[in-house]
Amino acid sequence: MIGEWLDIGRVDEIPLRGSRTVQVAGGDDIAVFRTGENQVFALLDRCPHKHGRLSQGIVHGGAVACPLHNWRISLSTGEALGEDRGCTPVVPVKVTAGRVLICRASTLKAAA
């Protein structure tokens, strides 16, 4: 039976205050972030501004600064912070026994 969650690896494979990606065939990558406080979040790897790869930005606090034009995107809601407006889809994620699991349904949607 297919479970609800996809196991993508160990949490310590994601650098602290950094991110890794999950490639989704036929769709946008998913960016999986780990904050300085060791919290894990996942977003589509696509800035609401001009589709910059959020996975390549600088992670600080609970946000990431997009590498292309420095918009700040909230990791928990995907929304642009400050003056900017826009939102990138959030992918549910959880950490169980040191493994990172992302939501299968959202991942399938990303591929669609």
Partner: peptide
């Protein structure tokens, strides 16, 4: 190496 390689790959077709 982690900067270059994706953490995982997902193939919906296989799924």
């Amino acid at each position: 190496r982690e900067h270059h390689a994706p953490m995982a790959r997902f193939q919906p077709q296989e799924e």
